[in-house]
């Protein structure tokens, strides 16, 4: 690696220079495109609200204040949604990790009664699903509509994660387990004292994916919680706010000028608030992302070698 670097350092032809300039420009531009929207949202939440309303905040924040963030606590229902989102992320992820580790371990045990059958029974579910309506009917039959458990229980089993854990456990030397079982440890003890600690790297990876999935999901909230707004997730809240804005915009386009002025006014006044809610949902991810990105990348690699 060092060698090639050296070569490039020494022999830069004019062609290389042109290539590098274009290449760097394109990538840095794309990175900016990925980053700018968050920056734009952010400066709009901390700038003077009347300037934001007038569309004056484009590249630099003006009249910096944090009242919008303080004001979030006054929005009805937002606090409960925040708690619901955090609760489902934490509880859902912990249970998913526990189940993936346990099942991943169990399916490596050749002597289990009907192991092959049960493993296939599990894996096949990755390749089909009954469809949205039967799923909804099933959830309502199980009493999981308008019920917090609907966020948790169905997500406990994740065949894909189980396969990842299983593959990982198979790479652990079997001697470790054998010696423990000779010492008289039962299956659960072996799992708890040997397998689980050794699996931590892979479990960390799937934990992060699971947590992001929980934090970001909103269709389950949308479909299952229609009768209980206090169980809406944060993403679902944001969706309803944004939806109002869109409907307003569509109305403005179709309606006359009278509504138009009034509606524009309200919609403009709402902008900083909406963006603040959006920032509140994205900040947790942006905060953990830099520390977690190596796990994310590890995760996709594990997926790639699965085949």
């Amino acid at each position: 690696m060092a060698k090639t670097k050296e070569k490039h350092g020494f022999r830069l032809t004019s062609e290389d220079v042109v290539f590098n300039i274009i290449n760097y420009t394109i990538f840095i531009l794309f990175a900016l495109i990925c980053l700018f929207p968050f920056y734009y949202l952010f400066i709009n939440t901390i700038s003077d609200n009347s300037l934001v309303g007038a569309g004056k905040i484009q590249l630099v924040p003006k009249g910096i204040h944090f009242n919008n963030y303080v004001g979030l606590t006054r929005i009805n229902g937002l606090g409960t949604s925040f708690i619901v989102s955090i609760a489902r992320t934490v509880i859902g992820t912990v249970l998913m990790i526990g189940a993936s580790a346990m099942v991943g371990y169990l399916v490596t045990k050749q002597e289990m009664w009907g192991r092959k059958f049960w493993y296939r029974f599990l894996v096949i579910t990755m390749y089909f699903n009954a469809g949205l309506i039967p799923w909804y009917m099933n959830m309502s039959m199980l009493g999981l509509t308008n019920n917090f458990l609907a966020y948790i229980i169905p997500g406990i089993i994740s065949p894909y994660n189980i396969i990842l854990v299983k593959t990982y456990i198979e790479s652990i030397p079997a001697e470790l387990e054998e010696s423990a079982s000779i010492d008289g440890a039962g299956y659960f003890r072996i799992f708890r004292c040997i397998i689980f600690p050794l699996c931590k790297p892979i479990l960390a990876t799937i934990a992060i994916f699971g947590a992001v999935g929980h934090w970001n999901s909103f269709t389950d909230s949308l479909i299952l919680m229609s009768g209980k707004p206090e169980l809406y997730t944060l993403q679902h809240r944001l969706y309803t706010y944004m939806n109002e804005a869109t409907n307003l915009a569509a109305m403005i386009q179709q309606g006359g000028s009278d509504i138009s002025n009034l509606a524009t006014q309200t919609s403009m006044n709402m902008r900083p608030i909406k963006f603040t809610v959006a920032m509140a949902t994205v900040i947790p991810i942006l905060l953990v992302y830099p520390f977690m990105s190596k796990y994310f990348e590890k995760g996709i690699m594990l997926g790639a070698v699965k085949g």
Partner: peptide, 12 residues
């Protein structure tokens, strides 16, 4: 790693 709702907020 951000949700589609948030992507829409960005688009908006």
């Amino acid at each position: 790693f951000i949700s589609w709702v948030l992507v829409y907020t960005v688009a908006f």
